[in-house]
Amino acid sequence: MNNKDLCIIFVEGDAEEILFNKLKQIYLSEGCRCDIKVINMNTGGYANQVAGKLRGLRQNDKYKDCNFKVVCCEYDTDVYEKLQRKKPNWTSLYKSWKKFHIEQCIRIEAKSSIESWMLDDKDNLIKALGLNISGEELKNLSRGKTSQEVVKALFKKRNKIYDKYKGKHNILPYLDKLNISKIRDRRESELFELEALIGLKEPQSTNT
């Protein structure tokens, strides 16, 4: 009997967790036969802590016989330059995870932040926040700002703090209203490997 596939998506912060769980719902509705688990590491530079999570999952009766497919999301990679931090050595990390019998590992890496995804559907975000902003106003508000700064500014207009790391209950009501299909279409190339990994797309290459 074939073991069930488990796709483990590691994300960093509540905002990523919310959006990837929305994507998960779409994938499942499209007949993805792979179990998907989104794990929010919620700590800076989480790469070195993945092993601990994988060990825990492997020891869990529910997952011990699953084929693990690991996805590490890494947005805001320019944070390494901003905070002058070393990038994780993913090759050596992949090697160190082999003892957990990982079938495949991929990484979604982007210099842009998860907030760029949100702004792919800015109309719904603005509507969810109950803001009445003209296109011109939004243009002025966005000038010279990163996507994260724009999202923060939009939340501030609603007198809300936008905390991407631990602000789930504050941001969920608004992010829940985003049209994730629209975002998925715009982020097709970034999501390609993930969707191939879970069998929704024909694979072209892998980074195992």
């Binding site: 501030k156 809300k160 905390d163 209950h169």
Partner: peptide, 16 residues
Amino acid sequence: PDKYEYLKSAIMSLVP
């Protein structure tokens, strides 16, 4: 009230 709501949002974000 705007400043208050923003502060309250920050408090409730940190103490969910």
